[in-house]
Amino acid sequence: MRRRRASLVWWIVFVVGFIYFFLPLLATLDFSLKAKPAFAAYTNSFADPKFFSSLLYSFTIGVVTIAASLALIVPTAYWVQLRVPRARSLVEFVSLLPFVIPAVVLVFGLIRVYSRPPLPLTHTDLGSTTLLVLGYVVLSLPYMYRAVDTGLRSIDIRSLTEAAQSMGAGWPTILWRIILPNLRVALLSGAFLTLAIVLGEFTIATFLARPAFGPYLSLLGNSKAYEPAAVSLISFGLTWLAMIVIAFLGRDTRTRIEIGGAH
């Protein structure tokens, strides 16, 4: 009896959750299909070269951001956990700062500092793009740090590091051949979150005047009726596709089981 009631509650939660998440999507889909002729919103979107160029730009920035934040965070989190575990709460606090400081404050700070000598980065395209990547590294910090930290906690990094050291391995070898491969699933989820943030980010990209996907979507929303709905759904679909790819890549059982069994 109790079990049946529990399963009823479970079903109610599931249905409510499903409606909450999918009803807006269905409404958006319904709205986007109202354009005449049928699917015009979609064909128009695909026909706009800016759609692809902004998506490609944001995607590239996303990949560069992921690489930069991994290069920054993996060695830092590894070192903190291995050598200065007492500093962990401090690093965790720092990693949460992007939640406290709004993106608009961050971007104005960046522009203020880097639009004048000695580092006038905003004067060139490459400089502005670099600032964009650095801004995104900061934005993705809470997600990336948490993912990496969780991954590191699930393996016995101290013993693995010492075992590798006793066999003659130096730090680069240990990081590259022992730590990174065992963090794969954690890194993939961190990378995915970062990519999702970058693809939808609007504030920093707009104020740095970058041709990114977020500002493009916003611009489209100002001038067209049905297309923004279509593009939203397309980007949503792309996000899901990325998630499936990550789930597929992370399906490797030996890593997953070992992480589970390493406690």
Binding site: D156, S159, L160, A163, S166, M167, G168, A169, R254, T255
Partner: peptide, 30 residues
Amino acid sequence: NKRDVGMVFQSYALFPNMSVANNIGFGMRV
């Protein structure tokens, strides 16, 4: 890593991402 001293740990500390053969051969590959 400069000592030429081998170590066996209580927790085994095998590299989860490597097969048995690759674990054993790790030091020689390094």
